[in-house]
Design a protein around this nucleic acid. Structure first.
Lengths: 409, 409
DNA sequence: GTATTTACGAACGCTCGCTATCTATACTGT
DNA sequence: ACAGTATAGATAGCGAGCGTTCGTAAATAC
């Protein structure tokens, strides 16, 4: 241990490795209980070793023993089965927006124990802290988990987040709001490691986990604001901290980033506000259209997509324009990253196939390997789910006594 | 072992881990010999353990013993020192282009043992295979390494390379040329693992290794063709296989990728050929300019940059235009990847500060975190160096008995 | 009720690494 | 030249863990 080199050591290290190996095997088969014989097979260890490790993990509370119940009708003495004791280290995820606070509690196996959401019409910074505290307590009560049991918490914030200090740039969504206060506040409530990350990053993590497997994922969050998260083989790519900020891609040949504006060119061009504005203009220009009929004065982003889905040519024109702008902006990144899949989430994702097909057509003209283009299946829960996921990863990395062989040069 | 889970096992596994730990510590201090006491400190193991491991590694030929020579004037019994025995597993790198073949041989510690380059005015595919064989043998002779000692070889190829099959798309640089034949041919000569990768990827690997440390690197190879390699924390990012193909980024709002053309829009716009063409046109339009004077009829890419360096406004205009087009094409990828550094290599990199400053100015307007913009220090050796580097990584990964704890979910 | 099958549990022997001790070597000071 | 000292290498004993082997418990099938 220590020194950053390969972790070697005595036999006690070996025992820790083997215990970790057993625990990892249990974790991999998620909520399904495992028999000891199966663990022997999966770990390649001898039965006494596994049995000892299981005993130890049972004592430490990481595993729980199942009765030999169920239709396990096989010959011989029934095997005792063990599974992860989720309550051993539950985690908490937090998604804070100016109008909505969402808190999720998950157990070690990734099962959701609680999900509480509260909306309000714009809180002040001080009120928001109070609401957060309430919602956290509500979620803990629903999950039947005492606050001191929570092993890790992750909060989502829009904007560019410094992974360590928790400082946030570029987002004055609530006046007087500071993510540092948020971290402090949550630390005061929970007494466990509390981390902060970009909401698009967390959503990407959740989507990647849901899709499973390896490969590169580009997960776009498309609403009023526009961001993306990159997950490569299960690990989040952060760059120097601002990776995935697709909202700031230039769309016009003369666009530059305005440091005084918290929104970027692409956000201004195809954010949900811009889509609604384009729709309103198109409705004014074509008063006879289905679009004008549907939307009226209060024309909304949803109206544009609804009219386009009904094959209104005016709305379809707007969608085409939006898709084209978006695809042209994203194409260079798709070429460079060459992702396995591009997943679109956020409010605009509700547009569905109308938008997706238009983007796909454009993207096909501009890329070499065409990635799968999908809509996020997680909808609005993506960010909280990702926050819980990251908290889980943190717990596993900290608790699994894996003396990580750093083979990176 | 086996089963893809965490590698645990008996005490013999522990011994292997500790031996690997010692070997890794020696490797980290590269060519400098280490005393046993230093190894004890770095590995955290006890002295007898280290001594035993060193004995074993000496017997196996991985380490060599140094005399207690040199001005090591300290008190007490002089320590025996050991270092990597580079000759234990030398590797070979191969860079094949239509007009040039380069072969490098490196030892385990990364020391270059030989570097042989041969140019010719366009070979046929058949001739090329012959030349490759000759150059390989020449390099082996220069390095004084018998062919059967080579532990791994990596060949560089332009175009998009399938990592496993070795099939190449999009590059008909030599008529009748197939990278599969190349692999077969080299396998016939060497009898060791032979791998193939994109030349831009390998150059990126070399540059990342030279820079050292962690972070994200975007390494652009800019010549007649345009490609890039991405290295994240020392690992190459491949995507689904075509990552980094910046040559195919669209530059005009109506550009699309033409599947029949092996070159992409950005290559056609700012490749060295295009720069020369722009220069010629500018010279025609401004016959009095220094640019026209320098270049004449045979105006070259180098002439454009030379004239710009002499502050010729006509040439500077061309450079500005090229820099602007390049920066606008690359900016989205820089935003999304948010790399620590962007390094430019290849023929155009010889332009130096004139081009770099112009790109930097443009990029500053279009990105949030401005990465360091640098010229490659490795010049034309980057690709071979990267090939050797990848071969070395392969050897280490294969030979180091690290039971890789896969902590990725 | 007995035989069979399956799984749990305990004892033995092996290997390995750590601690402690002893020996070897070269420089330093008188 | 000789003793002293500091550093490094070699060796023995101890403890811990894993794997193999054997015996035992619990359920089903006949």
């Amino acid at each position: 241990m220590s020194k950053g080199t390969v972790g070697g050591g005595g036999t006690t290290m070996l025992r820790r490795i083997n215990v970790a190996s057993v625990l990892d095997a249990v974790r991999r088969s998620a909520p399904a209980p495992l028999r000891v014989a199966e663990l022997v097979e999966r770990t390649g260890l001898a039965r006494p070793t596994v049995a000892q490790a299981v005993d130890e993990l049972l004592d430490a509370g990481w595993l729980q023993q199942h009765g030999p119940d169920s239709a396990d009708r096989s010959l011989g003495r029934p095997a005792i089965r063990v599974s992860l004791r989720g309550r051993a280290a539950p985690v908490l995820g937090l998604d804070v927006g100016p109008h909505r606070v969402t808190v999720g509690v998950s157990d070690l196996a990734g099962r959701k124990l609680a999900l509480v959401r509260r909306s309000g019409p714009g809180w002040t910074a001080q009120e928001l802290l109070g609401v957060i505290g309430e919602v956290i307590n509500e979620a803990l009560a629903e999950a039947e988990v005492p606050a001191e049991d929570i092993a890790a918490a992750v909060a989502a914030s829009p904007g560019i987040v410094d992974e360590h200090t928790g400082r946030v740039q570029l987002v004055p969504s609530v006046p007087g709001w500071s993510a540092i206060d948020l971290i402090k506040h949550v630390r005061g409530l929970l007494d466990c490691p509390v981390m902060l990350d970009n909401d698009a990053n967390l959503a990407a993590l959740a989507i990647a986990a849901a899709r499973g497997g390896t490969g590169t994922l580009l997960a776009v969050q498309w609403g009023e604001r526009l961001g993306a998260g990159i997950v490569i083989d299960g690990r989040l790519h952060r760059g120097t901290g601002a990776a995935g900020e697709i909202g700031f891609i230039a769309t016009d040949t003369d666009d530059v980033i305005n440091p005084d504006d918290s929104r970027g060119p692409l956000e201004r061009a195809v954010g949900s506000e811009a889509i609604a504005a384009l729709g309103r203009q198109a409705a004014l220009d074509n008063p006879q259209s289905r679009l004008a009929e549907l939307g009226g004065e209060q024309l909304d982003t949803a109206d544009v997509f609804a009219a386009a889905a009904e094959r209104d040519p005016v709305a379809q024109g707007v969608v085409q324009q939006v898709a084209r702008t978006f695809a042209r902006a994203l194409a260079p990144s798709v070429l460079v990253l060459d992702p396995t899949a591009v997943v679109i989430g956020g409010g605009v994702a509700r547009a569905g196939a109308v938008l997706l097909d238009a983007i796909s057509d454009q993207l096909r003209l501009l890329t070499l390997n065409h990635p799968k283009l999908e809509l996020s299946a997680l909808a609005e829960d993506a960010v909280v789910t990702g926050a819980m996921r990251m908290a889980l990863d943190e717990v596993w990395q900290r608790k699994l006594p894996t003396p990580a062989m750093t083979s990176t040069t």
